[in-house]
Design a protein around this nucleic acid. Sequence first.
DNA 1: TACGGAAGTGAAATCGGTTCTCAGCTTCAG
DNA 2: CTGAAGCTGAGAACCGATTTCACTTCCGTA
Lengths: 131, 131
Amino acid sequence: MSSTVQGLPPNYRTVLDVVEEAGPGSHVTAQEIWVRARALRPRIGFATVHRGLIRLHELGAVMKIDVAGGASAVYEPAASPHAHFRCTGCGAITDLQYAVPAQTVRRLAERHGIAIEREAVTFTGRCAHCG
Amino acid sequence: MSSTVQGLPPNYRTVLDVVEEAGPGSHVTAQEIWVRARALRPRIGFATVHRGLIRLHELGAVMKIDVAGGASAVYEPAASPHAHFRCTGCGAITDLQYAVPAQTVRRLAERHGIAIEREAVTFTGRCAHCG
DNA sequence: TACGGAAGTGAAATCGGTTCTCAGCTTCAG
DNA sequence: CTGAAGCTGAGAACCGATTTCACTTCCGTA
């Protein structure tokens, strides 16, 4: 809930509200978030929405998803890790229940001497509708 | 080898040669490929390189990698599927030996009624050098 | 050898998303 | 009240990716 994040500037709070209202799996773009945010705060600027998304992403409140081939990044409320699927026909993005096993991630990190903070798993192909 | 791809226009063949000469795990951008291609064909244009990469990607001869947070897409010769890691400190991209198990992919595809053609697994974090 | 269509090509323009700039405003500690 | 720090909106700048357009090359067919 947005109430779990404190000390947020009012506009950023608005951005967070919009993203959370869209809900998990909604995959909204910064543009769409801007449009919806203006319904609450007509004078909010796109730059502010974008800066808010960056901040909220740093805080871990929203997820930023860069799907290969997708025109722009999409956002959704932070939730349990899952994979994404993008249809090459209609461009729709849907959630898939998959995450790289924690043990596997740990092993990869150890072997390469790296610290893994985030993972992103995206599939592309054809959805049921686009055959 | 490039000899496995037939009937390629000369410029596209040049692009393929450049990518393959860079080798697996090289992660070169379209710009870098263009610079190297000009060493072989001084008059080649960027648009041609870009079109060549699209064609070669369609043919399955090169992989296109869109790493989240990375400025631009990178390319490398087609090889066995593997994951990528991007350091948030230095921006370097390295290969990791991991792929989603084929059985898992099949199960996901079945459950959602989709046809999965490609997968992309990318991790982000800190490399050994950036601590 | 001519011909004609299809495909390839280079330069530049364009596009779209993202990020930056800047001047003004708000907030808040002291 | 005052000053500093942070927030804000509008628009411009940026940058990689893609498209456009006019020209050239290639190749099959008479």
